[in-house]
């Protein structure tokens, strides 16, 4: 069991006929994800690895019945249109893989999604994986093992690295959520932690942050205010990042005096959250609070 998705989640792939969309549809199917339909405007009637393709989300719903979640591979210029189509058709969880969506479009999209009670994961995310059950994302499946650690991250490959370290030492993950590397994302650390905190299959949470913004600081403040809490361990990337430079991710930039490594580390440690100095230290910190 897990948060957000499970093996029964019925998934739509938007942008299914593109190079990335088609490739990852295959991998997700192999992992056991229940992909019921794909949408690419103008490509209705095709079939991608056995998944029927429709011209619109409405048509996919008419033909396939209920859809719980959508994963979006649509290029940046058209991605927000695709997300609007999903959320206005009542899909309650949208995972936006696309990188490079204009900031203002993201603002509007995420404000609107919140008003409709739709959960957006991303944009610019590797997605969500429930090891052994379902994968709605692009991560390499083999590094994840089932277990009782919840992982929430602003990064992609770094999440794979840390998940591998965790698996190597005999731990596993209940759910792994990439929240996205953009300045504006749908669900943040607090919102994902809240889901983990009520999930009976999660004993501890690993939080993977990076420089830029104040999401880690706000999480620390929130965590301190809780009476009952699950243990959290953190890693923050970007100790060596200079201010004013965008470190790959659109959101990874120290600007206007906000978002540096020292401030995040201090806020988390003051909240009683140990911060690992390097990825390989995370299992060590986990071993202090968890049984294998």
């Amino acid at each position: 069991m897990a948060i957000l998705v499970n093996k029964n989640t019925r998934v739509l792939v938007q942008g299914i006929t593109g190079r990335e969309g088609s490739f990852h549809t295959k991998l997700m199917l192999e992992y056991g994800t229940k992909i019921v339909a794909g949408v690419t405007p103008g490509k209705g009637g095709l079939d991608v690895h056995g998944v029927p393709v429709y011209d619109s989300v409405l048509e996919a719903l008419d033909e396939q019945g209920s859809i719980d979640a959508s994963i979006v591979f649509v290029p940046a210029r058209f991605a927000s249109e695709a997300v609007y189509e999903a959320l206005e058709n009542g899909i309650k969880l949208v995972v936006v893989i696309t990188e490079g969506i204009p900031l203002y479009d993201e603002l509007l999209l995420i404000r609107y999604a919140k008003s409709l009670d739709v959960r957006i994961i991303g944009p610019n995310t590797p997605g969500i994986i429930v090891p052994g059950e379902a994968k709605i994302g692009i991560m390499p499946a083999h590094v994840f093992k089932p277990g009782r650690v919840g992982i929430v991250s602003r990064s992609g490959t770094l999440t794979y690295e840390i998940s591998r370290e965790i698996s190597k030492k005999g731990y596993g993950a209940s759910t792994v959520v990439g929240i996205g590397g953009d300045p504006i994302v749908g669900l943040d650390f607090i919102e994902i932690y809240q889901l983990f905190s009520t999930d009976p299959y999660t004993d501890a949470v690993v939080l993977i942050g990076e420089i830029g913004g104040d999401m880690e600081e706000r999480f620390a403040k929130y965590y301190v205010s809780l009476n009952r809490k699950k243990p959290v361990i953190a890693y923050i990337a970007g100790k060596t990042a200079p201010p004013g430079k965008r470190m790959g991710h659109a959101g990874a930039i120290i600007s206007m005096g906000i978002g540096d490594y020292a401030s995040k580390k201090k806020a988390l440690e003051d909240a009683g959250i140990p911060v690992a100095d390097k990825p390989s230290e995370i299992p060590l910190l986990l071993s202090k609070i968890l049984k294998r």
Partner: peptide
């Protein structure tokens, strides 16, 4: 991004690249 050290870093993914830089410092 240009920095002032002497170990050139190539990695895949922004987070992993930063983590590699940070580990060098460590």
């Amino acid at each position: 991004i240009e920095l002032d050290g002497n170990i050139g870093v190539i990695a895949n993914g922004a987070g992993l690249t930063m983590a590699t830089m940070d580990t060098i410092l460590l």
